[in-house]
């Protein structure tokens, strides 16, 4: 099944990104396709390459980059939401790309399910 995911909260402040990540991993393990992960609202902060958590904590941003590399995931950051919050190509972590809100709508149209994670 094709599943799309959208994340509306930033890393660390809220559990949304963690839950979404573990959900995606479980879906991939079960043989589902993650059609796209779309980052919106403060969720765009999940794409900041400037993130540097303490060494004994999980690295949420790097974890998404790694999952994207391993499974060729399409991680899309909303351009309008990103510019509002200072996320641009210069500080975009590997595996993410910046694009329009249309990518969220398209994911909703093309995927069998769209699951939202937020506050």
């Amino acid at each position: 099944m094709k599943i799309a995911v959208t994340i509306n909260e930033g890393p660390y402040q809220h559990q949304a990104s963690d839950t979404a990540y573990l959900f995606c991993k479980a879906a991939l393990e079960k043989g589902h396709e993650i059609r796209r992960v779309f980052f919106y609202n403060d969720g765009v902060n999940n794409a900041s390459s400037l993130t540097e958590p303490p060494l004994d904590d999980r690295n949420i941003v790097a974890r998404w980059s790694k999952l994207a590399e391993e499974h060729k995931l399409d991680l899309v950051v909303c351009v309008a939401a990103a510019l509002r919050r200072g996320i641009r190509d210069e500080n975009l972590a590997p595996g993410f790309r910046i694009s329009g809100l249309g990518q969220l709508v398209e994911a909703g149209i093309e995927a069998d399910r769209l699951v939202t994670f937020g506050d």
């Binding site: 479980a26 589902h32 399910r113 769209l114 506050d119």
Partner: peptide, 20 residues
């Protein structure tokens, strides 16, 4: 359920809504 069960629930139901 675990995360796998979460995925199954999403797949089993025609649609889903996250009450944020």
């Amino acid at each position: 359920v675990d995360y796998g069960g979460f995925v199954d629930l999403v797949a089993e139901h025609k649609n889903c809504q996250s009450w944020l």
